[in-house]
Amino acid sequence: MNDCRDVREAIPSLLAGNLGPETRAQLDAHLARCQACRDDVETAIWVGERTRALPRAIAPARDLWTGIAPRLGRRTRRFAAPWWGLAAAAIVLMALSSAATVALVRRTVQPDPGGFAQLELGFQNAARELGEVYRESRGTLAPGTRAVLERNLEVIERALAEARAALDADPSNRALEAVVVAAYKRKIAFLERASAFGES
């Protein structure tokens, strides 16, 4: 290792402790007679120690989401609708129905052997618990409100059942799993809002 360039190339391995004994000896011999390379190595170590201590994440001083949400385009407006808009969203999704939705999510989904059953169990438990909360509070709702809420819930449940039936017919289809997950999430989000509506 006579060339200063070789030393520079070796610095990452030196820092990682990956140099073999022979290369290490050659490097040390070069460093003993080359001040410039000694400086480079010392500096790399000195800066490296401080760089490792840098925070990986720095929270912004203000909430930037408020400037992002309004820019998210058409899909946002549909989902940002108030609770009564959820039924419309569910209908739109049913109209698109499995084919289009599957095409949309297929690209984002990777195999996940075994994970889905557990995930679905979690969703089912959450939906059941929220369903109980809602049933407890529904007596406090005006009959008209209750009817609207329950009609919407029915639409969401029908979408879920349809997705679940499609998955039953094609159990290894990961894209359909994602559709089922999305349907559960809509049901849970709806029940959360409906329950809060009953409490207020």
Binding site: W65, I68, A69, L72, R75, T76, R78, F79, A80, T101, L104, V105, R107, T108, V109, Q110, P111, D112, G115, F116, L119, R174, E177, A178, V181, A182, K185, A189
Partner: peptide, 22 residues
């Protein structure tokens, strides 16, 4: 390789899932 429900849900157009990712 794990299915990330928030990512696929956001890709399907759910901005609340996307906010969680944010």
């Amino acid at each position: 390789r794990t299915v990330d429900p928030d990512v696929s849900t956001a890709a399907a157009g759910d901005d609340r899932a996307f906010e969680r990712l944010y």
